[in-house]
Every structure is written in C-alpha cells, then in structure tokens.
Design a protein around this nucleic acid. Structure first.
Lengths: 210, 210
DNA sequence: TGTATTCTGGATCAAGTGATCTGCAAGTAG
DNA sequence: CTACTTGCAGATCACTTGATCCAGAATACA
C-alpha cells in the first residue's frame, strides 16, 4: 500500500488490537483518544494519519472483532450443522468466549455501544446491524428445522429466535456481573429444553429410536 | 425540610424525573450536566445545591426508578405468588414496560451503565447490585418450587435462575433493537416451556387433574 | 544528489466536561 | 424593621474532549 515515503514506525495491527481491548472493556464513548494513543504508543498526528478518526477506528475494530472473537456466532449462519446443534454450539461457544480470561468479558457487539449520546448513533446502529444478522440467522435455523419436520410448522419462529438471541445478549451482562462459565453452561442446558419440548412428537420418537 | 430561606423555584421531583428520562435514554456517562440542567431548567448553582453531584443525582434517579418502573421485577421477591407464576409475571411485565411508549425503551438497570471508564465504577456497581437482587430472588423462587415438590431436587438452581435472568437482561437489548412487545411475549411463552419440561412428573399430573 | 512522499513529535485548536464561586434576590424568624 | 437562611443567575474554574497544523525526519524513486 504505502510504497514510498517514510515508513510507519508502529505496528498497525497491534494498535488495532490495543484499541479493540479498550473499546471492548470500556465501550466506544468512554474510551478517549488519549487512552487509545497511550496504549498504542503513538502521537495524535500518527493516529489520524493511520485511522482517520475515532469512529473510523471503531469500525475497523468491529470488523476485526467480527473476524476473530465474534466468529463464535457464525455456526448458526451455515447449513452444515443441524439447526439445533448450531444454536447450542453458538450459545456454548459464546459463553466460553465471553468468560475466558485474557480479554474483557462479555461481547463487544452488545456492550460497546448499548446506549450513548444523540451523536454516535451511527456507532450504535453498526452494532445493532451485527446483532440483526445473528437474529436473522437464528430465525433461518428455526425455519430449517421446521422444513425438516423437526419443529412443528405452527411454531412462532420470531418468538423462538428472540428467545434465543435475547438470552444470548443477556450472557454479556451475566459475564460482566461475574457469573462463571459453568453456570452459564448450565443455563444453556436448561434453555435447550425449550427446543426439545417444542419438537414434533414423531421427530422426537425417531431420535430416541434411531 | 427547608423551613426558612428563599423557597426553591423549580419542582424537585419533576427535575429528578427529567434526569431519569435522560439517564435512561443515553446512560450515565453520555448524559452531561448541561443536558440535565437544560431539561431541568435550572442553573449550575441550583443543581449542585439540590443534588450535590452528578453521581448523587444518579443514585437518586436509580432509587426513583426502582420504586416505579423497576417494580415490575418485585413479584419474584415475594412469597405471595407461586414461583412459576411469579417468574412468568416478571418477564411479561418487564417486556411490556420496556416496550411501552412514553419513555425510553429497555431497562435502566441494564443499559444506563453497562460499560464505562475506570472512574464511575461505583455507578456500575450500583446497578450490578440491583441486578444481583433480582438474580437472588429468582433463585429463591426456584428453591421454593423445589421445596414444594414442583421442581426436582436435583435441578441446577443456579443454571435455571441464570437462564431466566440472562434472558431478562437480554430483553433490554431486544427492546432497543426494536423488537415489538408481541414477539417478546411469544419468546417468554417459549422460555416458560423450560419450567414445565423440568417439572416433577407427579406435580405435572396433579396440575392437569386438579 | 534532488525531489516527492509519507510519517512523527509536539504545539495548538475550539468546544465541552463536572464543579465552584460570587453577588444578589427572596423568603422566614425575631 | 433587621438578621438569618436559602435559592438564583451567571461568570468562571482547571481539565479533557476529538481533531488539526506545522516543522522536521525518514524513506523511495529519479
């Protein structure tokens, strides 16, 4: 990209990673330029030359997060796994990721811009879009289960998917409140009972007698 | 209280209510003194004379919220209602409250200080304490159901209660994302299947044949 | 070497932050 | 009336906010 001119003296990827940590921990608005620059170890001029603005950096951070930690939710967007297994995997992987040490707890997509001033509405919308994708994917998984005859056609697909995503967002709050992974895992075990209770009886019997 | 001296020219309760709206909508940190004073229609001196500080005002706002909108969760803290009915009531009442027009959506206890700077940790802890009370009450309700023979003694009470509170916190995110009350209600209907699926068989039969 | 290009440190910007102070107005109590 | 108490408007506090500018430094290409 930069072919000529003075080469950059700092590691851009490492700087983005540092910003990711800060935004994840304290949220978009509560993270100041001074904090970012301090953690990145660069000056104001270098910051704006490399990232453009605080908001642009945040967008890049979100993209980075979506491609790393955020991938725990992608299983539900693929057809490879059976719907029930995909949903359960997403929940368990999210719980594990959000509580594991070495990085801030909870999910950046839920916590980093839950509320905020009238300005920065763009930032909130960005995260809301990512959540909408997950919600849509969960709903598609339920529809696939209906098509497969696993769940009854009469099921309320919106209600079922919002039950799952609602709990998924709540995991971030529980994580921040210090609820351990084992408890979250037990909660998921309970939650998945809904799926089994909603099953078409014949499909349930078919599963029990393979 | 104030017996002598110049009488206050603004309605203190109305001012707290105005602050409640702002904190609920934008969160603690994103709400500035200037916004608060503008909405209250008072000067800086009047503000600090009446409330002490931004943080002290927030604490009063939280108390006000807990005594009004926040009371939707108190049913689960009482012994008057059967546990299952209490949990279902809390969820449905919360969903209705969080989506009804006329005030900001979601729950102040979840949204107003989900994340933030290293300072203001006090504010975050204040809301976390309120959430801890709800979590403890839900857990007590499950233990009562176990004692009554409605739920099996072997049930994971922590997992069961965190499944419920996790979903409860997630309602705030869903509300902010624009999910309508009817969908949240349908999600609750699904979620309550967990309780019924976990029931002790005899208790279930006893309920079916009263 | 010379020129173009890019990056860097540091000063600087206007605006906004929560909070305080001063001088005066408006009441009550004696 | 006077003395005392309290609330008011507005100026002001030191500090932080995100962002910009400038002079100099370091590289590539000619």
């Amino acid at each position: 990209m930069a072919r000529t001119g003075r080469p950059r003296e700092f590691d851009r990827d490492a700087a983005v990673q540092a910003a990711l940590w800060l935004f994840w921990e304290h949220g978009y608005e509560a993270t100041s330029l001074a904090q970012l620059r301090a953690r990145m170890g660069i000056s104001s001029a270098s910051f704006y030359a490399a990232f453009g603005s605080k908001e642009a950096l945040f967008e890049e951070v979100v993209r980075t997060y979506a491609g790393s930690f955020g991938r725990v939710t992608e299983a539900v967007g693929q057809d490879s796994l059976p719907p029930r297994a995909a949903v359960e995997y997403v929940l368990r992987a999210s719980a594990r990721m959000q509580t594991e040490p070495g990085h801030p707890s909870g999910c950046l997509m839920v916590l980093a811009a839950a509320v905020g001033g009238t300005d920065h509405a763009t930032v909130r919308a960005l995260l809301a879009d990512h959540r909408a994708v997950v919600r849509r994917n969960v709903r598609a998984g339920i529809e696939r289960a209906v098509d497969a005859g696993e769940l009854p056609a009469a099921i309320d697909a919106d209600g079922m998917s919002v039950m799952i995503t609602g709990f998924l967002w709540g995991l971030s709050v529980e994580s921040r409140d210090g609820t351990p992974m084992e408890t979250l895992d037990a909660a998921i075990t309970q939650l998945m009972q809904v799926w089994d209770a909603a099953r078409v009886p014949s499909a349930q019997a078919a599963e029990l007698v393979p």
